Every structure is written in structure tokens, then in C-alpha cells.
Simulated scan of single mutants.
Amino acid sequence: MKNKNVLITGGLGFIGSYIANQLIDDNNVTIIDDLSTGNINYLNNPNHENLNLIKKNLNSLDLNSILIDFDYVFHLAALVSVPLSVKNPITCNLENVTSTVNLLNGCVNNNVKKIVFSSSSAIYGENNNLPLKETEVPMPSSPYAASKASCELYIKSFFESYGLDYTILRYFNVFGPKQDKNSPYAAVIPNFINAILENKQPIIYGDGEQTRDFIFVEDVAKANILAAESQYNGIVNIARGEKISINQLYNIIKNELDSEIVPKYLPPRMSDIKHSLANIDNMSKIKFNVNNHLFEHQIKCTINWFKNEL
């Protein structure tokens, strides 16, 4: 992608900043981020001449005036904490659903070419039809998951009603450098790494035999850009299409750090699903693929980043 005007909501966040870093040399990038969870230091060059940074909440802005002459919108800004969504579902709806409808309306009013929306595998809920296909009926078990499902429906309705092109990306478990160990979003890998580096026992909830489908953050950023450039209007799972147990994952990290620390097992959390695995056939529709042979190398890169941080 070159010579485009792009907007990234949540562009100072874990995933959004990777998209910004990949685009900013060849495109005009505007980021809207209220810094509630974002960090300007996630950008490789916060003073880049192609960057316009708006440090505001989406719901506080006149998006109709901001979205003039934009080609693509990458919408990542959201309240992503399941516990916080359970504690305050009204705030979750405001931050996730209301802001998305406002953004969609601004896109239509300004003839934006396409919106790429960051959704979540959480909308599948406790679904045992593995590997999960995008055609599965959503079974959200939290207000957060329900808000993502609602946004997906709104986006599709804006395509049907106004012709706004879109691609919805349902992320599975994203990991990589810069991930906040205190983040509520798929933080098991940074938690394991940091615990071992601090000579503490990592915590595993349940027996550790639950499985997840992890994907590297740089791959997720690439998927966003390919989705914007594609002609595909629809939903795409973003994952490796391979499952790994939490115990297996811990052993990879432990061995890489040459540690003998044994994890501490606690009772399973009520909100946790047992198994998660994506069907990734639809990724070909945006010409995106993942090299699964790089997984352990990507874990190593993540570990090295946390080593340097500490």
C-alpha cells in the first residue's frame, strides 16, 4: 500500500501500532487513540512527518469532519477487557458499539473506500465445532463478545444499506513484542515470560491441557493491510490454524529461557473456554497466509524483547 490516506483507531495499541509502523513510510497515517491502553512509544517514530495523532476518544470527536479524503479505516479502538465488560456493560456498549456506528456513519458520509474491523474469536463462545468457521452462529458469553458481534452486524448492514466495503478480521490469540503483561487480551505468553525472568512461578488456570490458536502480531498487521487492499467483503479468521496446549506452550518458553521453574496450577476460571482452533480457509480470500514453521522463532523474538525491557 502506497500514497493512501489511512485512519487507524486505537493506533497506539499493541496491534494498531504495528499496522501504523508498517504503513507510515509510504502513506499518510492518522491515529485516533485516547491513550487509555495505548502507548506512543509503541511507534517506531512518533515524530514521523506522515503521522497525524489525535489523542481523543472516538465518541468525543466530529468524525464527519475528520474523515474527509480518507481511503481506508482500520478500526481497532475498543474496550477489550472481558471482566470490565461484565462489570460495566453500558460502558462497553458505548466504547465498542456506539463508537463503531459513529465511525461507520462518518465513513459513509465521506465515501471512505473500505473499513477493516478488528473483531475477536470470543464471539464464538463455547463452541465445540472445531475448527471454527466464520459461518458459525455467534455464541457470545460476555458483554465484550456481544459488543463485537453487534459491531459485525452493524458493519454488514452498512454494506447492504450504503455500499460501504468492509472486511471483518476475527483474531484468535495474538502475541508478540510490546504486549502488555497486564493486558486482559491474550496475555498468557507475556505472563509466562515475565514470571520466569523474575524467578516467579507462572500461573496456569486449570490443568493446562486447554488449547489455543496463537498468531504473531506482525502477521496480524499484515493481514489488516491485505484485507484493506482486497476486494473481499466478509469475515476472516486470523490465526495459524494450529492448536497448542498451555502446557506445551509453557514448556517451549521454559526451555528457551533455560528454566526449571514449575508453574502453579489454580482452579479454572469460569469465563475460560477449553479449546479454541480456527478454520483458516477464508484467509486466502485476502491473499494472507502464515508460515507455521516460524512459531518457535516468533516466541524467541518475543522473549528477547521482554529480556531487553527488563
Rank of each mutant, 00 (worst) to 15 (best):
N3S: 14
L7N: 06
T9G: 06
G10V: 02
G13C: 07
G16A: 10
I24A: 03
D26Y: 13
D26H: 14
T30H: 01
I31L: 12
I31C: 00
I32D: 00
L35C: 07
G38W: 01
N39W: 04
N39H: 06
N39F: 00
N41R: 15
L43F: 10
N44G: 14
N44H: 14
P46F: 08
K56F: 14
K56R: 14
S60H: 15
L61D: 10
F70I: 00
D71I: 08
F74R: 01
H75I: 06
A78V: 07
V82Y: 00
V82E: 10
V82K: 02
V82R: 01
V86Q: 15
K87F: 05
K87P: 06
I90R: 15
C92W: 01
N93P: 00
T100I: 05
L103E: 07
K113D: 08
K114A: 00
K114M: 03
S118F: 04
S121V: 09
I123N: 04
Y124E: 08
P131N: 12
P131T: 13
K133Y: 13
E134C: 07
T135L: 10
P138N: 12
P140V: 12
P140I: 13
P143G: 06
A145P: 01
A145E: 00
S150K: 10
Y154L: 10
I155Q: 08
K156Y: 08
F158N: 01
F159P: 01
S161Y: 12
Y166D: 08
Y166F: 15
T167N: 12
I168P: 01
P177A: 07
Q179C: 04
S183E: 02
S183N: 00
P184R: 06
Y185S: 12
V188M: 09
P190A: 02
P190R: 01
N191G: 09
I193E: 03
A195M: 07
N199D: 15
K200M: 09
K200S: 09
K200C: 06
Q201R: 15
R212S: 04
I215D: 05
I215K: 02
F216Y: 15
F216C: 02
V217W: 02
V217G: 02
D219K: 01
D219G: 02
V220T: 10
K222C: 10
N224R: 04
S230N: 05
Y232P: 03
I235S: 03
N237P: 07
G241F: 03
G241T: 08
E242R: 13
S245D: 01
S245K: 03
Q248Y: 03
I252N: 11
Y265D: 05
L266F: 14
P268F: 09
A278E: 08
D281I: 11
N282K: 13
I286F: 05
H293P: 03
H297M: 09
I299Q: 03
I299R: 06
K300S: 04
K300E: 00
N304C: 05
F306E: 05
K307H: 03
K307P: 04
N308T: 09
L310E: 09
